[in-house]
């Protein structure tokens, strides 16, 4: 963990995302941690440290929206950026309505990611 940097937690069952996204976040000046499932994240001690959550929508076990509801119940107000490989335009407004900062369709550009991160961190 790097001193003074904001921690971004990445939760995705796809390994290539867990592998690549934290590296990019670190290059952009964030601290980053990857989890392969919502359950793994909930079991960690990183929840309160996390300033923003980059969360996959469809995962085995708890899905992204499931985790979102759970965190709301636990009053953990972590800004969430959803990412998904299913380009379903109807999903995005629903997720934003339920409190997500943004929903990015894979593959997304670095610019879109940083824009979303900025608005997330500004909110918090």
């Amino acid at each position: 963990m790097m001193e003074g940097r904001q921690l971004i937690s990445v939760i995705d069952d796809d390994e290539s995302v867990r592998e690549s996204l934290p590296d990019l976040l670190k290059e952009c000046g964030f601290d980053a941690q990857a989890f392969s499932s919502a359950e793994e994240f909930l079991a960690s001690d990183q929840i309160s440290e996390t300033k923003c959550l980059i969360l996959d929508v469809a995962m085995p076990g708890l899905s992204g929206p499931d985790l979102q509801r759970k965190l709301t119940q636990q009053r953990q107000m972590i800004p969430i950026i959803f990412i998904t490989a299913h380009r379903d335009e109807t999903v995005r407004p629903r997720l934003i309505e339920q409190g997500a900062v943004e929903c990015l369709f894979k593959p997304f550009s670095e610019t879109d990611l940083l824009t979303a991160l900025n608005s997330a961190l500004r909110v918090s």
Binding site: V17, S20, D23, L24, K106, P107
Partner: peptide
């Protein structure tokens, strides 16, 4: 296809 593409672009 999008999963690997996502990795490619991020990397």
């Amino acid at each position: 296809v999008n999963q690997p593409l996502s990795g490619i672009i991020t990397n």
